[in-house]
Design a binder for these strands. Structure first.
Lengths: 354, 354
DNA sequence: TTGAAAGCGCTAACAA
DNA sequence: TTGTTAGCGCTTTCAA
């Protein structure tokens, strides 16, 4: 049956060759071509070579829709993409997503981005699950009581979280959990605090987020732990504010007046930029008179004059681990990896001496 | 035929209900259910209601793979995701991608991200085209002689470019072109330059990219045009360098020494940050002694002390236009939109007076 | 080692 | 207005 050139409905490119086209050309059955692609070891060497030649000549690539339908898997990873906040120094997503896409490709997956309603953290997931549009999800915006995780777990949808299941830490009964990858924020701020203490500082202040932020409290503990393990006081040296530059500015001013710190460790680069503002306003030189450390190693930290010392999250590594966990979840037999906690590093710049 | 609960191969969630399940429950044929979903106006009101009730009760969503296979379209938009350069102030992608995802959703599409080899700008596209994994592409990293556009055009693959087809501007013969959306960089730098001239500056310098950057030359023209239309000289006031902070720093120092400008317009925030460095080193106050304007309205511009005046690209609008063009391309009959050139705005901050 | 048959879930075309 | 038939391109099962 000579194949007429089929066309896509919108009359774009001619329809690509199919298994049947390759089979005809190679003089074998469709099944043999399928095996050549998926189970080449089943074919005799010369048959395989003949089929491969036909595949090459025709430029054949298996049709995804057909394959997806048959195998019930799409090799697509879903990820809800929330925008970075304007006015904060967080370009986390860009770095993470790129490596995620890269690592996914190596594992044979693509990344499907979707949006959701702002007010409903679970919106968007349901439709993708029911329409079997993706094989699994990456959940990035985890926070206390994170509803996505519970929702997905309840429906037995495979996913990996970037972020610990915080709701579990307080001694909840052990139950089968999803794999997760996270960065040890406390270790990061501890690194930052130790860096200052090693340089001779003894009064190091903390500017962090409001108490309802679990991540913020985690980071705060790195700071307080570092001070306490050297027998240094923390009283009066901590401030909890909104994650904005003005908040950081004001917190720094108050702390400077009331607690006379010689160094600041901040929960974000945004807050640290506020501290730098206050220092400038008072004629204090960052890194010389007062040391400042931020968190996230954002572009702002890299480009601000003199440079801002900052804690850098190993986002590339996180993405690689996420994909590794995903591969485990989706392989048969299924391998559920335990949680992975990665350590950040400290990038030292002018704001803390050097 | 009572339906046994099928399971996915990896033994995750039970397989979702199908058209047949809904049909059985509603007491109609599968085709009628399909029509209820895709052509509801064909059904009698009471039948429609009955089918819809069954759909609701079962939580039915059409299976994508099956639909894709049948309709030969995936409702997926492919986009190659390149990472932002570290050390430059460009967080363009984040803003653009978010709105792209959002607008795509409203149009009934999802965004599929893929990676490519660094050295081959066309890698990644081919496989997606041949496997009919996406309906169209968004091409973002356009530049002179951009090979993706030519490649895709040659294969009749629908796509929309973020970026003008620069190779065409020099009077190439008219031929069927792809839709594109771009931001008028020259208009942006003109805005910036006029802003300084209106404030009384007469010697405004330019720090831009090397001559082989078409985008850089476009932006440069905005500056030179603004000066020329007021009869002001440009000679000796322009510098073309790498897009790094140190380059901006050095260029500013040289220009300050040799041309005595009172204002700087830069092709990027990165370069502008370099200018600010030089001003600080010389005890010159940005916005008071010397005015500085950057380009991109990056986080750095927003957060740097005092603030950096910057040209802001309407990336959200770009994304919306891109999706509109895509909708046109993919609709039947096909509507090919002309190119769309959007105007940037100027965000005035402390570095230019305020 | 290769081939034939069946069917994944859906929609286009047509018939009733 | 609704139902029947066919088939999109692939892989799984089973037979040769």
């Amino acid at each position: 049956m000579g194949r007429t050139v089929r066309r896509l409905p919108t009359a774009y490119a001619a329809a690509p060759p199919t298994l049947a086209d390759v089979a005809e050309r190679a003089g074998v059955s469709r099944q043999t071509v399928s095996n050549a692609v998926n189970n080449p070891e089943l074919l005799r060497a010369d048959t395989l070579e003949r089929v491969r030649a036909a595949i090459r000549e025709l430029g054949y690539t298996p049709n995804r829709a057909a394959r997806n339908l048959r195998t019930r898997s799409t090799h697509l990873i879903g990820m809800r993409f929330a925008p970075a906040q304007e006015g904060t120094a967080n370009a986390t997503m860009d770095r993470f997503v790129h490596t995620l896409v890269e690592a996914s490709r190596e594992a044979g997956y693509h990344v499907l981005l979707f949006a959701g309603e702002d007010d409903d953290p679970v919106s968007g997931y349901g439709e993708l699950v029911r329409s079997t549009a993706v094989d699994a999800f990456v959940v990035t915006d985890t926070y206390l009581g994170n509803p996505q995780s519970a929702w997905l777990e309840g429906r037995n949808v495979p996913f990996v979280a970037f972020g610990r299941p915080w709701d579990d830490v307080a001694g909840a009964p052990a139950r089968p959990r999803h794999p997760w990858v996270d960065v040890d924020g406390a270790a990061g701020t501890r690194l930052a605090t130790d860096h200052l203490l090693d340089a001779g500082h003894t009064r190091v202040a903390w500017i962090g987020w409001r108490k309802d932020s679990v991540i913020g409290e985690d980071r705060r503990q790195g700071w307080s732990g570092a001070l306490r393990s050297r027998g240094l006081p923390t009283t009066g040296l901590a401030s909890r504010v909104e994650d904005t530059v003005p908040s950081g500015r004001e917190a720094a001013a108050v702390l400077l007046d009331e607690a006379r710190p010689t160094g600041f460790v901040c929960a974000s680069d945004t807050l640290a930029m506020g501290v730098l503002d206050t220092l400038a306003a008072r004629g204090l030189r960052p890194g010389e008179d007062i040391a400042v450390v931020g968190f996230d190693d954002s572009q702002v930290a890299q480009l601000t004059p003199g440079g801002l010392t900052s804690v850098r999250q190993p986002l590339e590594e996180v993405a690689v681990e996420v994909v590794a966990a995903l591969e485990g979840l989706l392989s048969v037999p299924r391998r559920v990896r335990a949680g992975v906690l990665l350590s950040p590093t400290l990038v030292v710049r002018g704001s803390s001496g050097s």
